[in-house]
Design a protein around this nucleic acid. Sequence first.
DNA 1: GTCTATATGGCGATAGAC
DNA 2: GTCTATCGCCATATAGAC
Lengths: 214, 214
Amino acid sequence: MNENNQPAREPDTEKRILEASAKVFARKGKQGARMQDIADEAGINRTLLHYYFRSKDKLFDTVFEMVFARIFPAMTGIMSSELPFPERIELFIEAYTELLRENPFLPVFVFQEIYEDPDRLLKLFMSKGFDPESTLAQLRSEISTAGLGDMDPRHLFANMMGMVLFPFIGRPIFQAIAFQGDKDAYEEFLEERTSHIPQFMKLAFIGAGVQNQK
Amino acid sequence: MNENNQPAREPDTEKRILEASAKVFARKGKQGARMQDIADEAGINRTLLHYYFRSKDKLFDTVFEMVFARIFPAMTGIMSSELPFPERIELFIEAYTELLRENPFLPVFVFQEIYEDPDRLLKLFMSKGFDPESTLAQLRSEISTAGLGDMDPRHLFANMMGMVLFPFIGRPIFQAIAFQGDKDAYEEFLEERTSHIPQFMKLAFIGAGVQNQK
DNA sequence: GTCTATATGGCGATAGAC
DNA sequence: GTCTATCGCCATATAGAC
């Protein structure tokens, strides 16, 4: 109970706005998103958005940093663990797919943004102390140690990220064409991928071992 | 020389508009793209866009169908050839990567659109007589014949498309982080992928053969 | 804190001169 | 066919009542 009779500030209004914004920005892009769309999604009045975040630009900035804060730890936490290389890959894929299953709007949101402002994401990475050079060097030595020859870690990374991301980015059309639009079947497919992708990569590693032996 | 003194219509103005539109729509999305942006990119007056295509909607529709007309044959032409399965995969990847290297804006353009209107692309596929069910069934039998067990063709397709698409969709950030922004190095990387991806899949197939033998 | 009403600017579209 | 000038709409943003 407040001392005055003003209604108490809904404690989760701000959070609701951020979640709604993330969804709408992901669906429509930064420009395509209307403040009214976001207000509707959050179930609040449109001007409240301005009350909380002043402008559309500031709202977007806040959402983008929130989204990044979710993705970044999932990437680097596992990267820097002490586990052997193949197990780390497996964990990375599982964690990432799980993150995307819970936040399916993330990749579209990020990819829309990197075309709007490519430097922004890069700066965020750097500000977190991420060091591409040393990460690459470390991966290179680990790949070699794992008996995979001189496979470029950047190819491996592109393979892995592509396999993980595609079903999320292409979902609307892929689900419609290959699953007759069956949402539950697609969810199951996504679930399967947490084990399929590491398995597929392991098969490639086995194949590489066979090739390198001869 | 015309009979009247009106200036002749630039023969490639329409084509220039379409190319410019594709680029701008890909960068900014349908909503984010301004008619002025497109006019600037094409080097013409803004109202000429309306003269040629009447409205932004109609212009977008035209561009989208043009883009689809480029992608579709590259997918289905190879799919329906008589070559053995692994060779078809290799050809598909090469053709697709080549298409994307020449038209790097395609995937972003398409992915932005499928979130705006998921049914549209599906309808285009259907109108071309594409039959998902029979394609899936055919792939399933071919995978089995190729000694790959009962690997779901949809997983295989998602793996393949993801590996091909990722470096194009993620280019701005991936080039910046993993290649220090070096454009030429990235082009070379894309070139390498036409051989790396088929090679990687072959390794997985070899690995699958090893697993199935035991 | 939340609402209604309104100011301001930008964009798509068209009319009309040349 | 191409340009300049302009109309009308819609979205962001703010002012101000409650």
